[in-house]
């Protein structure tokens, strides 16, 4: 079973980031942005297709360094 990849794995990180932000900014209001996020996450989750990896990703995303240190 594959582990969650946390080493750099994205070609052209700056180009990807710019496209990501552009896509979100094109959504309009907060409700549209939340719906877009949900669709995007579900698409990517299906692409990953590994339950254990998805659970690890959910756990990692739940960590918040700012809050952890008060």
């Amino acid at each position: 079973m594959a582990d969650l990849i946390t080493d750099p794995n994205l070609p052209d990180p700056d180009g990807f980031y710019a496209e990501l932000i552009r896509s979100f900014e094109a959504q309009g209001d907060d409700a549209a942005i939340r719906a877009f996020s949900a669709r995007l996450i579900l698409l990517l989750a299906n692409h990953v297709g590994d339950r254990a990896v998805l659970s690890r990703a959910l756990a990692e995303a739940a960590r918040n360094p700012a809050h952890a240190r008060g």
Binding site: T6, P8, N9, L10, D14, E60, N64, P65
Partner: peptide, 17 residues
Amino acid sequence: AVLDLAERHAFARPLVN
């Protein structure tokens, strides 16, 4: 979110600009 993840995860560091 990138900055938060970059503390623990190498993958997010190339995104910090």
